[in-house]
Design a protein around this nucleic acid. Structure first.
Length: 821
RNA sequence: GCCGAAGUGGUGAAAUUGGUAAACACAGCGGACUCAAAAUCCGCCGAUGGCAACAUCUUGAGGGUUCGAGUCCCUCCUUCGGCACCA
């Protein structure tokens, strides 16, 4: 009997070998079936898979196998986000060249993928560190440069001292570097940017298309990040007559302006000679932006002595320099209305600036001298010239109309999102294809000379500096325009550029050009799966990049990801598994102890995919037990397999009920997977079915009709198991003589007529409280239910002598009798 | 402050359209098998009271709508996530 033990090691090896041998996961264009592109976010090849990866890819594999069984032509590729800083750190610390370190890691992780039995089409593998891939980063970069979407500018940028490179705004979290968590500082540097702001409106509009398929919270995070606001730019004037434009979202308060504030970095301030003011500006500029904007930071300012004229009422108000005004937002200058803005109120109190009420509370009039904070609610305009008496909501529109008609203002839309800083002072990334010539200035490398190859034989000498920066053989080149001496850009691209289009490359991985026609057969990705942490990073960048590719005519869809599933984290002892906390569980160890099928099932059973999952070794054991229970059941009944047809009406009650359970299980498992994305309950339903088989009398199952029923059970249950535990499912399929790869079998169907229970339990309530229950035939009528309720001894004793107000009968569920007194 | 998600047994969690709260599993307890243990199979398992039948209570708190609320509405509390001197 030894060969009939559940030996997961042998089984998993056997089927992984057969799948590979027959190359069954390879995908081709096929017009006879509907396409389905399923993608999980590709990993950074850090060396080993962690549980988060296992969870992500297990969910993806389930959906890929399910859609395949449902008859779709499924694209399910995998690749490597293989540029990035950890490779350089390994090089510096252990003197391993980044290329070798990365390649070794890819090979190791690929073997781990194989051990998990994922259904990837490896013939489409893509790795971003390969010249044939990153050539197209450079090619698109050149196109973007030509369109003004890639540009170089001097700007204050985020600098991570630990990583020795600049960072995009999206990569600074809470003032800290997203990768190494060290404090980010500000530096004024000449850097390359992608003009994502040009697509701010499109990125926002695109949400309309995504709102059914994406989690609400991801859309919200992106909306907040894009930060669209509607307002009015008002041309205040200096006494000299010069324009002094400011942006406000509260034009209704313009009659209440009592001072103006300007950012310390504003070039306007160069004209001020006053040494006190210049000292203040110098001091403010020294504070990093992060310090200045810290939450509890005291607002500081100084009067410049300059007066600004309000175009609405002619008021002359003082101009202050203030540390809280941002140069990058609006015009870098603001109007201040202390009566109706808390920050302005505090500042005015501190510097003794007058406060002027222009919006009153209609419910309880405000005494401006008694105010302890600004009045920021809606109200009625007062002291507002011709606009006095309007509701402030109305005043916003009327004042804006007036400003536009009289040339003193213009309705303006502002966005908080800033351009994407993409240059990195690092070695292990895609070279930026720019050349600097003293005569011709910035030049792009011509298309015929692409790719600019990143040299891989480099020596770090233990230094944290990028070796490119001092590599003369790389730097020295000829100017593409004049042929004279020129120098290459030594910065590389943010690795988020690499991952902004890989999903499209999977669709035509071997094309000579960036893509071939296949890209538009497969795109968009129908279902994308990955972590929530990319909500405003990768998921925003990729949408932007895809829109650029759309405008270049390379891709026919504007939005690359139709549906998005953000899977939860893997938690142990109340915290995310991480090396620093020491609560990491190595997937390899668990696979060795229980098998890949068990690990996969646990990942799907312990919680719904979008919620966090609590790691529990006991829970893993439970899944292992369930697989064993199925195994023993199949071994026990495998000799009963028959092709005899079932005569349903002739079945015994027990067999009828088992068969009903089977069809109900298929129905709910199908729905849980395809509609509800709730794999934990799908597994629970299968457990119930297996429990029902164990509950069924063996002699009944051994009967002729019993054999037919158990055959049906096995021939439907095992294909369902395939998407959760593919190795053992294939083995059991072979055991019952299923034939062919289970991977290629159709998903089991069910007969809806058989899903109805013959006998159901109904409840009898009095005033909504359950007082009695009864087993009845499912064909019972409403009238019969009502009669039964009244006749029920418990019910009748409760309602005896009471007035019945009404009776509510819910067919197949309950009877509720409402009584008085 | 603004926006979003969540709060259910000892634990992970179910409850699909407002209709039997706690499915399924983990842990625990008991039984069968065994010389014994493991494995396996079977049973019990929200709280309180009761020998029991049973009764009462129970989905963060308090109100409301309804014959009936975990689910809908209002107020509040807590936790997590995002944005935040953005004018």
């Amino acid at each position: 009997m030894a060969e009939l033990e559940y030996n997961f090691k042998e089984i998993e090896k056997k089927w992984q070998g057969r799948w590979a041998e027959k190359d069954i996961f390879k995908t081709k264009h096929d017009d006879t079936r509907k396409k389905y592109y399923l993608l999980e976010m590709f990993p950074y090849p850090s060396g080993r898979l962690h549980m988060g990866h296992v969870r992500n890819y297990t969910i993806g594999d389930l959906m890929a196998r399910f859609m395949t069984m449902k008859g779709f032509n499924v694209l399910h590729p995998m690749g490597w986000d293989s540029f990035g800083l950890p490779a350089e750190n390994a090089a510096i610390q252990h003197n391993i060249p980044p290329y070798k370190w990365t390649t070794d890691n890819i090979n190791h992780m690929k073997s781990q993928f194989a051990k998990l039995g994922f259904s990837y089409d490896w013939s489409r593998e893509v790795a971003t560190y390969k010249p044939e891939y990153y050539k197209w980063n450079q090619w698109v970069f050149v196109k973007m440069f030509e369109k003004g979407l890639a540009y170089r500018k001097n700007a204050p940028v985020n600098w991570c001292p630990q990583c020795a490179t600049v960072l995009a705004n999206e990569q600074v979290e809470d003032g800290k570097c997203w990768r190494c968590k060290s404090e980010v500082t500000q530096k004024e540097l000449n850097q390359w940017f992608f003009k994502i702001t040009a697509y701010a409106e499109d990125l926002l509009q695109g949400h309309e298309e995504l709102k059914d398929g994406w989690p609400e919270r991801v859309l919200t995070m992106q909306r907040n990040w894009i930060g669209k606001s509607h307002g009015l730019t008002i041309n205040f004037k200096l006494e000299s007559g010069e324009d002094f434009p400011i942006y406000t979202t509260r034009p209704d308060t313009v009659y209440g302006v009592t001072y103006m504030v300007i950012a310390p970095e504003h070039p306007f301030l160069e004209r001020i000679k006053d040494t006190n003011v210049q000292d203040f500006i110098a001091r403010m500029k020294k504070q990093s932006l992060i310090d200045r904007l810290a939450e509890d930071k005291e607002k500081e300012g100084i009067d410049t002595g300059i007066k600004v004229i309000n175009p609405f009422n002619g008021d002359k108000v003082p101009l202050y320099v203030g540390n809280f005004v941002l140069m990058e937002y609006g015009t870098g200058m603001i109007m201040s209305v202390p009566a109706h803005d808390s920050r302005d109120f505090a500042f005015a109190k501190k510097y003794g600036i007058p406060i002027k009420l222009v919006i009153d509370n209609p419910a309880s009039p405000i005494d401006v001298n008694a105010m302890t904070d600004a009045y920021v609610e809606d109200g009625i305009n007062v002291n507002s010239g011709p606009f006095t008496g309007l509701s402030n909501r109305e005043a916003i529109e009327k004042i804006s109309d007036y400003a536009e008609k009289n040339g003193i203002g213009k309705r303006t839309v502002n966005f908080r999102i800033k351009d994407w800083l993409i240059s990195r002072q690092r070695y292990w990334g895609c070279p930026i294809p720019a050349v600097y010539c003293d005569t011709c200035g910035i030049q792009m490398v011509p298309e015929k000379d692409l790719p600019v190859i990143l040299p891989i034989d480099v020596d770090f000498h233990g230094s944290s500096q990028s070796p490119l920066a001092s590599m003369e053989s790389f730097i020295n080149t000829a100017c593409p325009a004049c042929g004279g001496k020129a120098r290459r850009e030594t910065d590389t691209m943010d690795t988020f550029v690499d991952s902004s289009w890989y999903f499209a490359k999977f669709a035509s991985p071997h094309s000579k050009d960036m893509f071939d026609d296949e890209v538009n057969y497969w795109m968009p990705v129908d279902q994308y799966i990955g972590g929530i942490e990319h909500a405003v990073l990768h998921l925003l960048y990729a949408r932007f990049f895809n829109m650029v590719l759309y405008d270049l005519g390379l891709i026919k869809v504007k939005e690359p990801f139709t549906r998005l599933l953000t899977q939860g984290m893997v938690i142990k002892d109340g915290a995310k598994m991480s090396k620093s906390l020491g609560n990491v569980v190595d997937p390899d160890e668990i696979i060795d102890a229980f098998g890949a099928d068990t690990v996969r099932m646990f990942m799907l059973f312990a919680s719904p995919p979008d919620k966090d999952l609590d790691w529990s070794e006991k829970g893993v054991e439970g899944c292992y037990r369930f697989i064993g229970r199925v195994w023993r059941m199949v071994v026990k009944y495998r000799n009963f397999i028959t092709t005899e047809t079932i005569e349903h009406e002739k079945l015994t009650t027990a067999l009828k009920s088992l068969r009903g359970e089977l069809h109900r299980t298929v129905k709910s498992v199908t729905k849980d997977i395809s509609e509800r994305l709730q794999y934990n309950t799908a597994i629970a339903r299968m457990m119930e079915l297996v429990n029902a088989v164990y509950q069924c009398d063996e002699k009944e199952i051994a009967s002729a009709q019993g054999r037919a029923v158990i055959s049906e059970v096995l021939f439907k249950l095992i294909p369902m198991l395939n998407v959760f535990t593919p190795h053992v499912a294939e083995e059991l399929w072979e055991m019952i003589g299923g034939g062919g790869f289970l991977y290629n079998q159709p998903w089991p169907d069910f007969d809806d007529a058989l899903t109805a229970k013959e006998e159901i339990e109904i409840v009898f309530q009095v005033n909504g409280k359950i007082r009695s229950k009864a087993q009845v035939s499912s064909s019972i009528t409403k009238d019969e239910m009502e009669e039964m309720a009244i006749a029920d001894p418990k019910i009748s004793s409760i309602i005896a002598g009471k007035e019945i107000v009404k009776k509510i009968v819910i067919p197949g569920k309950l009877v509720n009798i409402v009584i008085k007194g």
